[in-house]
Amino acid sequence: MAFKEKLSSTFYYYQWVLQTRKLRQGFPRYKVMPVEKCISEIITGRKSASRFGDGEFRLLFPEHYLEFQENSEELRMKLKEVLAGSLSNHIVCLPEQFCSFRNFDINTKYWWKNFINHYGKRIAPFLDIQRTYGNAFISRFYIGFKDKSESRIKRTVNTLKRIWDEKDILIIEGRYSRLGIGNDLFSNAKSIERIICPEKHAFRVYQDIYEAARFYGEDKLILAALGPTATILCHDLAKAGFWAVDIGHIDIEYMWFLRKATEKTPIPGRHLNETEQQESLDLPEEYAENYIKSILLQIPRSA
């Protein structure tokens, strides 16, 4: 982008911020831990974590749905239960932008300020200004940040990898998520096993997923990448005494970093709901054997 275009974009952004500031008045600045602090809480306290992003907040309201997750009364009730929960072994994670915008690029600032413009007053009743929340961006550490330097990203990734260092992990993911396939994200784990779930509308078979997680997740660290279903699952597993972390998007963010991407781009072999284009979902042959060996169970779609 030419300097003149950058200047124009920056000028437009700050002009827009001033014009829309009244829409954000009354939306509190919540207490959200820095990414490093949140990861430390997960490790040292052996705490489960559930992440709320824009999709989870939209699904609190019956008129909204996501392309990959339909809405339902049960889903809304479960999401509200997670937000209101106060388990000692569980962290509710909010977007960092509910506390501060300083670490993010203009496009990300604009997107989240606009989200607050439209939804801030509606979601505020579900949140507690006195509470300290975890950081939902523990798994969104690259795209959207101003600082995309290799040193910062590697430092964050190495901190994240401490969560599963030398641990037996159970990954609960969508059919085309394929966490860690084709990269070294989980190379320091003791072992990796997987439960494969429907890539769309996973909450339809929530009870099957929950029961499978309990059956196969004993004495393991459970990592869930399954949209709003993972948000709910990690809370319910924490209630049952399991260690479960909602880690969705971590693999895609890491792949974007490895490719030095400057915007959200398709990744071969991965399903992406945040890009207009989609690369082939075929699994590269060199990774197929290890991936298939790691699968304990595939949960079928509900009719």
Rank of each mutant, 00 (worst) to 15 (best):
E150S: 08
G134V: 01
R140F: 02
D147R: 11
W111S: 12
A202C: 15
T156R: 06
I196V: 07
Y176W: 14
K200N: 14
N114Q: 12
I129P: 06
E166P: 00
D184E: 12
R175Y: 12
I123V: 15
L185K: 11
D165H: 14
G134A: 06
R152F: 09
D168F: 10
R122K: 15
N117K: 03
S149M: 05
P198L: 02
N114W: 03
N114L: 11
N188W: 09
G174Y: 12
I169Y: 02
I143H: 11
F141D: 01
A202R: 12
R178D: 05
D165V: 00
L170C: 07
I181R: 04
P198K: 03
R140S: 02
G134S: 00
W111R: 15
D147G: 03
L185G: 08
N107Y: 13
T159P: 08
A136D: 12
F186M: 07
T108Y: 05
F115G: 13
W164S: 13
I192V: 15
F203T: 04
H118P: 02
N135Y: 06
G182C: 05
G180V: 10
D147I: 09
Y119T: 14
I181M: 07
F126I: 09
R131C: 04
K109P: 03
I123A: 13
K148N: 14
N135S: 06
W112A: 01
H201C: 05
K146Q: 13
R122P: 01
